[in-house]
Nucleic acid binder design. Structure first.
Length: 365
DNA sequence: TAACCGTGGGG
DNA sequence: TCCCCAAGGTT
């Protein structure tokens, strides 16, 4: 066990906090105590690297500075602000929660772990993070970093992503949280996992907790955490079609649930990942190759060859799905998936349709 | 419970 | 290139 003596264990939190205060990286969400902004940052950081979330955080908190403005915002505007960040239900759940709060007459978040947990899009990690960082409540916020750090401290042989392993981690983690600095402690664990106690590297000589780390003593740090293996990814190839009619392109709308829910997109197919569009083979020969875009979801990695297909003035795409024609202004304003956004960029780069905001010069198009 | 839900960077 | 990984949550 970690508490070979409670003495060294009790020295863990102070040592970690001292290290954190000198080593922590500057992030925009570390410059605020506003529970709303801390909530936004924690949701953005779900399964997302800090470096990517930072730019989105700045823009979002400027566009939607508080609960009320988020609750009253146009949903498409929200998704545009989230465009490219992935897991778009996070943005929808943020607004759903904001509406709940606004309806109950609040313009902020509850300072209570279980009330936070009850809000859409907030699970055990995020509730713990907001409660501890914004309100000073001594509850754990255990993410993948925390699981790795404590798997190593304990030299945990049980899978860290199964109930037994999670319990062992949570028990030790909770016992170390100092009442006077729970938010800093939670962040310090994550910071340690993100900068020192890394998955493929363990810089133990720089670690403030090395003196109580069992995996370090036993030389098993890189074998921890043990994880319950999930299914491997699969790859597929397909096509994405940009149908062009005069200066408009064709978009279809996705279902309101599931992958890229409610988004519009250039028609694409990549069997067996997506239902067939019923595309005639001749269509592919008719298209001009614009290169490849990649997209990924769940276990799929898909490469889509992008084809530009010019159609006649009254011709509709020979597809089994329905969609609509949009001009360049609207196309630019729409939220698209990352792959769709790259296809759109190719389109504007070719100046096949006018690029909004850029003067059309002779020779363009 | 296990599958689903995105994306980009690093080894 | 491919695989792993990331401040997880929902169904």
């Amino acid at each position: 066990m970690i508490n070979e003596g409670n003495r060294s264990k009790n020295e863990g939190a102070p040592a970690l906090l001292r290290w954190y205060h000198s080593a922590k990286r500057p992030f925009p969400w570390r410059e605020t105590g506003d529970p709303y902004k801390i909530w936004i940052s924690e949701v953005m950081l779900q399964q997302t690297q800090t470096s990517r979330a930072a730019e989105y955080y700045r823009r979002w908190t400027e566009l939607f500075p508080d609960v009320k403005s988020l609750a009253g915002a146009d949903t498409e505007e929200l998704l545009k602000a989230w465009e490219g960040l992935g897991y778009y239900s996070r943005a929808r759940n943020l607004q759903k929660a904001a509406k709940q709060l606004a309806k109950s007459g609040s313009n902020s978040l509850p300072g209570d772990y279980f009330k936070l947990l009850a809000l859409p899009g907030i699970g055990p990690y995020t509730a713990g993070a907001v409660a501890s960082i914004a309100f000073g409540i001594p509850v754990p916020a255990i993410d993948a970093n925390g699981r790795r750090v404590f798997s190593r401290l304990l030299d945990l042989e049980e899978p860290a992503d199964r109930p037994a392993g999670e319990r062992a981690i949570r028990d030790t983690f909770s016992s170390m949280i100092p009442d006077n600095a729970p938010g800093d402690f939670n962040q310090a664990v994550m910071e340690l996992g993100a900068t020192v106690c890394l998955p493929r590297t363990a810089a133990c000589s720089e670690c403030p907790l090395v003196f109580l780390c069992l995996a370090h003593i036993r030389g098993t740090a890189l074998l921890r955490p043990v994880l319950f293996r999930k299914e491997q990814g699969r790859s597929a190839d397909g096509h994405l079609f940009i149908f062009l009619r005069k200066d408009r392109v064709y978009l279809r709308k996705r279902p309101e649930k599931g992958l890229w829910a409610g988004f519009e997109e250039f028609p694409w197919e990549a069997p067996p990942a997506e239902a067939s569009l019923g595309i005639p083979g001749t269509l592919i020969e008719r298209g001009a190759d614009m290169g490849t875009v990649r997209c990924s979801f769940t276990r799929w990695r898909v490469r889509l060859r992008t084809l530009l297909v010019p159609l006649g003035e009254r011709e509709d795409p020979p597809l089994s799905c329905e969609g609509r024609w949009v001009g360049s202004d609207e196309l630019l304003a729409l939220p698209l998936s990352s792959a769709g956004g790259r296809a759109r960029k190719k389109l504007f780069g070719l100046s096949v349709i006018p690029c909004p905001g850029r003067p059309v010069r002779a020779g363009d198009g």
